[in-house]
Amino acid sequence: MLGRATKIAQALMTAPKEYVCLMRLHGRVTEDELVEVLRKFIGPIYQRPPLRSSVKRVVRIRRIYYIELLDREDRNVLIRVGCERGTYIRKLCHDIGELLGCGAHMQELRRTKVGPFEEDETLVTLQDVMDAYRMWRDHNYDECLRSIIMPIEKAVEHLPKLVIRDSAVDAICHGAWLAVPGVLRIDSGIKVGDTVAIMTQKGELVAIAEATMRSEEILTADHGIAAKLVQVLMAPGIYPPAWKKK
């Protein structure tokens, strides 16, 4: 995350994740036994963070959304896991091993999805970045860099949106909560407490907020607060304050 985009770190941290993991079993297990045990870990599970962790070591509940058995060769098991943020895959492997009876450990881990980011054509290597930088710096060719650096709006692709009037933008940049009259368009399906992205009509991200009304309420109300600010992303002054208009 570059510059102001570091501010979305918090929003991304709470997003669901996906990992591909190489698990090594400590004994012999049939495919059926393996699948049956893996199935038991779908849904909410208990986890206590391992010794080497930055969080308080209390037992907590985390959701496993899916486990895909990708490949199996003797004691090597390759799985893809979709889970709630804060799930320890190492602990998951350990617990799978416990339930199998023979024990298991996490051999390798790769994170494959974080919120809207995944392993697609946007995934680049350090080498790609260096090459693109050199093209820009030495040859004034910016197309490579522009295809590598994504606008901050990409980080909220997965969030429901509230599109607002130009006149409401600057107030929000200064920390004002979003009032219903400022809203032009509302994504359906927003519930109270949902994280939403506040956008301009030009598609720029203004702020991340927490909805205080449902989509239908925002649509029909003529006053009240639609969302309270969580994080402002847009710099103030890009849109003029409402009282200066005209």
Binding site: L2, G3, I8, V124, I149
Partner: peptide, 13 residues
């Protein structure tokens, strides 16, 4: 590019 550098995201492996 200058604007993207001020508020951009790289999906880096």
């Amino acid at each position: 590019v200058e604007e993207l550098l001020q508020a951009g995201i790289i999906n880096l492996d």
